[in-house]
Design a binder for these strands. Sequence first.
DNA 1: AGCACGCCGACT
DNA 2: GTCGGCGTGCTC
Length: 733
Amino acid sequence: MAILRVALDVPLNTLFDYLAPDTEITAQDVGARVLVPFGRNMMTGVIMEVTAYSSVPSPKLKHAAHIFRDVPPLPEGLIALFRFCSEYYHHPLGEVVMNGLPNRLRSNKPFTRKVPSACQYGLTLTGRKADTSIIPARHIVKHRLLARLRESRVMSISDAKQLSPRAPKALNELITLGWIEEIPFAHPATPVPAAQALQIPVLTTDQRNAVDVIAPEIGEFNTWLLHGVTGSGKTEVYLRLISLVLRQARQTLVLVPEINLTPQLEAVFRARFPTLRLVSLHSGLSPSERAAGWLQAQEGAAEIVLGTRLAVFTPLPKLGLIIVDEEQDASFKQQDGLRYSARDVAIFRAKQAGVPVILGSATPSLESHYNAVTGRYLRLRLSSRAVKNAALPVVRCIDTRAAKTKESFSPPVISALERCLALNQQSLVFINRRGYAPVLLCKSCGWAATCERCASRLVVHLRDKRLRCHHCGHQERFPNVCPECGDQDVVPFGHGTQRVEAALAEYFPGARIMRIDRDSTSRKDAWQHMLRDIHEQRVDILVGTQILAKGHDFPKLSLVSILNSDASLFSTDFRASERLFAQLMQVAGRAGRAGIPGEVLIQTEFPDHPLYHALRQHDYDLLAQTLLEERKTAGFPPFVYQALLRAEAPKIDTALGFLTSAVAVAKALGEIEVFDPVPAQMARLKGMERAYLLVQSGSRKKLQAFLGAWRTKLDALPSRKVRWTVDVDPMDF
DNA sequence: AGCACGCCGACT
DNA sequence: GTCGGCGTGCTC
């Protein structure tokens, strides 16, 4: 009787053996999903191996209930990728495998592919004449659907879903009522491309060079670092290479950071390749849609798979190229569960598949930069802007020790904004802090509002008169008096986007000001509408957080002011400068992209800091060299390889106690540098106390070997009330 | 992780 | 006398 070795979504570092449900089991079934009894439940897992014998005593073995043959089994390569991740990140294989599957395929129910809805919806005669007031006013979705249909006659299911996620249900009820009917599509939804949409831009010398160098290497593994200043046209290089890959009938995987950038890039791809079969895996998809896209990729039908970090686990039988855009972005590292770096997994995957991987960035991570310096990655530079006459913006520092700020603004920034307004040009004010003020203080006793579940200050949101924790989402009412001393003098301290917006409104009563942060863009489609307003010049001054920094072109923008970024200069996090630099380069890059000369003003108390110096010169390499030297002296990555043992417990001493015994175990294993356990930066989060222990080594191999042995020993350690995980190549401390 | 079993305090 | 607390141990 064949034995199935099954990966299950449980935090145990083992596969589970089952007797095959019938005799028709072959090696073909490796990679298939399987329904098995586990404990007292049924669970869905993936068959990792089919063997003849099991080391589990036979009375314990149960029969698998059912092998799903609704979708093809996972390809061998993907299983190998999962095994690699499990080993490298020291995370249970079952969790890695199940984490990689779309949710819909993790369930115990077979997958039935829904025929993509080939119809639109329109009003019936009854519906057109009907009195909508007989529908209760609280059925907002129904009213909106009807109103929209009276306007536009027809709408597709996706139009309806844009109105509300509950629209399908409302539609069905209205169909039952006889007000709405299904209208079959006359034509497939593929729009005929306008001739001018296909105009292909002429490449700059740098772009041409990059394409010419990479093109002959398609079909071979190499890691390319496409290092291009903001606005240098990295996307155009991607497009040229993708078109080569398309011609070979192979698939391209494009990974993007976790922001609403996916639709932008999707539109660019569709405009260039009108008949392209593209699957976009973003957070807005329903489980069925995601599974459907995933299957199209697995069947080789999708030519491009575009998505955020999870997309790195999409099965791609005809993979020809991987692109990781904005490779330095922190969102490629998952911060819970399997703590993988999608960028690093992508590189492994490219190597495994024998295809090139392109890491694109204006400000590469120091790790990638170093790999390019040592020759492990091949760097290609795009050093000029792609749009004719678009020069890099002039960057100036405003010394706020000399030019005193009032409500966050120094006189030079105010006059620059005035100038911009007079010239009818747009300007951007960057302050990376949401809310009105980052802290609420009592002037009398020094009390500050803090989150009861986290070790964080509550942020003042004046608009809704509430205090909010930006770490756990907790919110409470704004106190009228200090809860400590009863004094009435509780005041917001410091500046966030809302306060800056209010100050600007005072300075420039006539200006059209728009605030752009997670609060103002959280409503569905809000950001899209705001983008349109910006493009159509209905806005003079944009105030916002890093959400503004990424990927968007604002052609009319000529001035960028950065109000308050000094805090990150002297952070305890050794990666803070690198991140700040990347962020400021990105924001600065928003200015002057379409021929208007751009200007960037940075308010700082440390205008002589090397970071600002490099920024003024647009000199990434200069700063990278400085930072690398610092890291080398201090013994930080990329000169060492690190891992964290993270522990959390209701009481900090429990976590620290566990870590202390882990230190003893680690020291006994030897050959590795072990640091003392310390409380995490955000020591308390969501009611849990957190601490970590850092280990590092100059050799990745040694670190890996150590982690394997260490983890086995840690599993045996008593860990009452403590939850612990290993974080390889940690990004957050 | 779930989910059992299992042994000690405040309630009908 | 029971209901229920979460400590410990197992899941093929």
